[in-house]
Structures are given as structure tokens and as C-alpha cells.
Design a protein around this nucleic acid. Structure first.
Lengths: 345, 345
DNA sequence: ATTAGCACTCACTTGCGTTGAGTGCTAACG
DNA sequence: CGTTAGCACTCAACGCAAGTGAGTGCTAAT
């Protein structure tokens, strides 16, 4: 399994993976000796390739074609052979430029970040905004919509805005709501939503007697408002980039991918898994548990401001993805977004 | 041009259009006589078809194939031949069911409506939320994000929430902002955003002297906040439905469509045009000015609550679209959304 | 005016030989 | 003994020709 590859085998594997990433065509022995200046004859390379096939790093579409990397081959390449280059200055600049987000709200920024990811990587970009649960409470507002229907607006420390409609059972007047709003906004800021919920539970349980009517109502109302976690919004950019890939020309695979990219829920599931881990994570082909994105690789990184709102962004593309370019892009973008979150707050 | 077609020609044109909508294959003379019980021989039908070709209602992919409708053919069909059936009970119910939007905010509802449109029509659904300009002001909130950066949140009468970040030049404290918020929320509700802006202009110009410092700041701040119109958000649902259509199997056309559906701006342009007109509008093929959706038809209808927030929704699909089904779906959905808007407010 | 009959068109399919990139094996080489 | 030249073999891809059939368009008969 973890078979020790000698240097020559490594070089050849690397060459094959890189050639295949470029051309998307099976790589032959002659092609390698031509393009890379190994001092080896095609025959020798063939021998090595045969070994690599035996070990499971390469596969052949049919006997008389070149070889293509297996998922395992890519994995070895990414883990052992790839040296991640620094992101070229030009990209850096063009991203910082693209990230002039003045006057934009959080949703727009997230979408814009997705566009940047997609535009520069030339694959499909994904951004999952921080789940509300993980953010720090800044402000809550209640607006009376109609008899018994309330609009609740949360604002997080980082400027994230989310709203939902609740029906608390009692019909508050706008004036009552303003008092409640006021009371809450003076007591709750600085805690995470999770902490806020705990605090509410405690106050309602233990200190019920000490609270006046307004205060009790305030806590009950905000408890209702925070009851379900609002799922982090997912932004997808450059879906059509997926269709540009030669591996997804077949109608079937095309549909499968597009359906997945349409389903926010599936994307949340995908991105959620890398939420907690730090740094860039790479899921290659079948490795990425979710079978729905068969033939795809996913490169993700969580981002967070100093104040702890945690989201995830990433790039999704064919397994035959330009890892050496995309990895630094994702890495840099995550840190860029982190800085934006801090600036906003 | 407006050549008077006799009844037989009309029947045959109708039959061809409907068969073609079903099968997506050129319709031959024999096929017609078989499927529809005209008492006519294929030869006679052929003569009529030849006439219809001359008049521009039909075209032939090549000499020895059946005939397919031209855009003009579809248009005649939609305008003169099609009788719009009522939406079947089952669809009606399944939509009303799908529209249990309790506890959902406006964005979720809009997205859900898109899904409904797409799911029931089996084409791609589009929803453009009301432009903020056209909505009635209900509430404004200012939240201080950081030195000089303010988050402004608008709520419209119908429960629509939008936010943006502004940098007013002065650094207001949260307490000052609350006073301003308070002042504005007591003076502005009930007007449209456009009216609000006019009012602000007037107050600032004519009654400058009479205003105290707070009031002046309030007006200046909200003027800044309302400076640009926030474009109505566009929701797209069921893009992959487009790829199911046989006319978009070619890689090129696929990409073109997907790119268009990705570009919110292009969609806004498309939907904007039918914003003002009342009732269902139908854009067939090239007729829909925008060349980017070559080969597509668009069926739209504006929706509005009694309180005037106007948005547009619609279905986009191949020119060979099942008009008789989609038209009532779009019509019904628009009225459904209208009712939802009223309920919300 | 309608229809049967018939020659003609033309995309599409099927089968078949050709091509060429590339392998895998063997035997020779340094 | 690792490396290499040589060579037979494999197999997708391409091109071509013949065959197929749905469908037209014209003409002459009803």
C-alpha cells in the first residue's frame, strides 16, 4: 500500500500526472521521454509504468492506450510530490483588487468571493457563509408584519444579516417590540448565538421570578427566534466552468454535476465536513464520501475572522484538477476573507 | 403576413406544433394523418404543409425530413390556436401545498416559488423579487459596524429585507443611530422608497433651517442609504432542467444557456421588460430581443400585493415548450405570490 | 379538390479495411 | 543486471461505401 517509490518512479508518476492534468489524454511512454528530459528510453519508462499500474497508481483505459492516474495516483501526487507554489503576485493583486468590497453587504461579498475563486481558478467556486450559530450576536430587531406575525432580523458581529418570520402566539405591538428589542440589544451582544441561547434558558429557568413581564417576554421571544439554526447560505459561482471540462462532456455526467451544484443542501453537506479542520483540505474523487460528485475533487478551506465567524470556501472541479494552482488560490482566498470579516466588524 | 389561414390549415398547423412539442422530431405527413383523425390522405396534408412552409409557419431541416414549426409558427399557434386550459386541480393543490411558507422569510419564499415553478412546469423557473424602489417603506435600522462603517437594514411593507453597508463620513455612535432610527421610523412608513427619497430632498432643501441637528443628520444619512436602488434579487431554480431538453444537447448551446442563467444581470434585464405589463407575457425565440437565449422561449408574469411591491416570475425553456401547460402555471403562480405578499404584510 | 402512385432525396446506420499511437515481450547490449 | 532496441500485437478512431427508410414533391387519375 504505502509502497516506497524510488525517485525515478516518483519522477515518472509526477510527469504523468502533470501531463494528464494538462492534456486530459492518456499519457504514453514516448510522450514522457520527449516532454521531460529524463535520460531514459521509452522502453524503460514503460517498465516503470507497468510497475505503477501494478501498484495501483495508474490505470489504462485499454491495452493500447497510454496511462492515466488513478485516484490513488492523484493522492500520492498531492501528498508527496506536489510542491505548492506561492500564489503569483499578479493573482494576489487581482484578488485584492477584486476584493474592493466597499459599500457591499455580506451577501454580495460572499458572492463576489465565489466569483473570484471561480474566475482565477477557472473551476467552480463555492462559498458557505458562516452558520449563524457560530457567529457573535450583535443586534436583534423585531418588526411587526401583521397580526401575530413577526419579522426577526439578526445582525452578527461581522455584519452578517439574516432574517426569519415567526409567529409567537401573542400579538405584540411595535412599541412593545421596541422595548424588547432595546432590552435585548443591551444585554446580549458579545456572545455567540449558542451562548445567547444558553443564557436565555438559564434566565427563564432559574430567575423567572426576578424578571418583570417585559423581560420575560423578551427572553421568550428571542428563544423562539433562535430556535432553529439558520443554515449558512451557500454561494456557487461559475457552474458553467464545470461544463468546460472534457470529462463532463457526456450528457449524463453533466446532468449529475449540475443537479448536485443546484442542491444547496448537498453543497452544505460537502462543505460542512471541512468546517472544523484547519487549513486547506483536499478531497480527491471517490475519497470525498459523497458519491454525487463522482469524478470530482474538492479543495476547501475554512475562513474565520478574529471574532470567530466560521465559514468554508472552496473550489470544485474534475479529479484531473490543477492542484498546484488551486491549492494556493483557496488558501489565499480563505485568509483574504478572514481579513475582510475583521475589517467589517 | 397576417395571411388568413383556413380552418384545415389551422388544424394541421396546430397538430404539427403539438406533435413537435411532444416528440421534438420533425413531423411528417403520414404521422399526422395517423395520430389525428383528420379525414385526409397524407398527400393532401403534404400540400397544406407546403403552403404553410411558403407562408413561413413551418420549415424543413432538409428536403426529405418532416416539418418543424418556425418561431412565427409557434407565435401563430400561441396567439390564435392555443386554448389555455385551466390549471388542473392537482397542480393547484400541490402548489398551494408547496406554498406553506410559515416561518420562512422572503428570500426563502422566493426561492421556494422558483422551485415550485420549475418542478411543476418541468422547465427552469425564474423569480425576481420586487425592486426595492417600488416597495413601501416599513422600517429602517442602522447598526454601527466599525469606525465610520454603518450597516443599513431596510424592511418593506411586504416583509422584504435588504441591507447594505455605507460609509457616511461621520462616525455615529450606536446611541445616535438609535435616535435617528427612531425618528425616521416614525416619519417615513407608508411611502414608497421613491417617495421617501423625494421627501428627503424636499426637507433638506426647503426646511433646512427648521430642522435640528439630529433631524438633519437623519435625513442626510437615509439619503445616503437610499442613494442607489438595490436591484431585485433573482432566483433561478431547476437550471438542469434546461439540459434535459434535446435541443440543448450540443455542448455549445448548453454552455451558452448555462452562462446566461448564471448571469443575474442578464436575467434581470430579461425579466425587467415584462415588469410593467400586466398579465402573462410570452416571448418566443428570437422575439425575446436578447440574443443570449437563442432557441429559448420565456413566459413571464408580474406579481404584486395590494400594497404595490412588484416583482416578476416566469419560466424559461426551449422554444418547443409546452405553452398550454406553462401559461396557466405562470399565471396561477403569479397570483399565488400576490396573495402571499398580502398575507405577509 | 383530393388522392394514389412513384421516383427521388438525404440523414442515418452498418460493416469493413486502414491507420497509428502505444503497449508488452524478448533478446541483445554495456 | 539494469537498460534498450526491435517487433508483433492491440484497439480506438477514422474514412468510406452500400444499404435503409422516412418523407417529400410531382403527376396523373378519380
Amino acid at each position: 500500500m504505502g509502497a516506497p517509490l524510488n525517485e525515478r518512479s516518483q519522477n515518472i508518476l509526477e510527469a504523468i500526472v502533470e501531463d494528464y492534468i494538462q492534456t486530459a489524454e492518456p499519457v504514453g511512454s514516448r510522450a514522457i521521454t520527449k516532454r521531460h528530459a529524463f535520460d531514459l528510453s521509452p522502453a524503460t519508462v514503460r517498465n516503470v509504468m507497468a510497475d505503477l499500474v501494478d501498484m495501483g497508481f495508474l490505470a489504462s483505459p485499454h491495452t493500447s492506450a497510454g496511462r492515466i492516474p488513478t485516484d490513488m495516483g492523484y493522492q500520492y501526487y498531492v501528498e508527496s510530490l506536489l510542491q505548492v507554489r506561492d500564489l503569483p503576485e499578479e493573482f494576489r493583486n487581482s484578488m485584492e483588487d477584486g476584493a474592493r468590497f466597499a459599500g457591499k453587504n455580506m451577501e454580495d461579498i460572499m458572492q463576489e468571493v465565489g466569483n473570484l475563486l471561480s474566475g482565477i481558478s477557472r473551476y467552480t467556486g463555492l462559498v458557505m457563509a458562516p452558520r449563524f450559530k457560530s457567529t457573535i450576536f450583535r443586534r436583534i430587531e423585531f418588526v411587526r408584519l401583521s397580526q401575530g406575525r413577526l419579522l426577526v432580523i439578526f445582525v452578527s458581529e461581522s455584519g452578517l444579516v439574516q432574517n426569519k418570520v415567526i409567529e409567537p402566539g401573542i400579538d405584540f405591538s411595535q412599541r412593545e417590540l421596541e422595548s424588547i428589542t432595546n432590552y435585548l440589544n443591551h444585554r446580549l451582544p458579545g456572545m455567540t448565538i449558542t451562548q445567547v441561547r444558553e443564557r436565555i434558558a438559564v434566565e427563564l429557568r432559574e430567575e423567572k421570578s426576578r424578571l418583570n413581564k417585559l423581560q420575560k417576554q423578551a427572553f421568550e421571544l428571542s428563544d423562539k427566534a433562535l430556535q432553529e439554526d439558520i443554515a449558512g447560505q451557500v454561494y456557487v459561482a461559475g457552474t458553467s466552468r464545470m461544463l468546460e471540462q472534457p470529462e463532463f462532456t457526456s450528457h449524463d455526467s453533466m446532468m449529475k454535476i449540475m443537479r448536485t451544484l443546484e442542491s444547496k443542501q448537498q453543497l452544505v453537506d460537502l462543505l460542512d465536513s471541512s468546517q472544523s479542520a484547519a487549513g486547506v483540505q483536499i478531497f480527491i474523487g471517490s475519497q470525498s464520501s459523497h458519491a454525487t460528485i463522482e469524478g470530482c475533487s474538492l479543495i476547501t478551506a475554512p475562513f474565520s475572522g478574529q471574532k470567530g465567524a466560521v465559514g468554508t470556501l472552496g473550489v470544485i472541479g474534475p479529479v484531473r484538477m490543477n492542484y498546484s494552482q488551486v491549492i494556493p488560490i483557496v488558501d489565499f482566498t480563505a485568509s483574504l476573507v478572514g481579513r475582510i470579516l475583521d475589517r467589517e466588524s
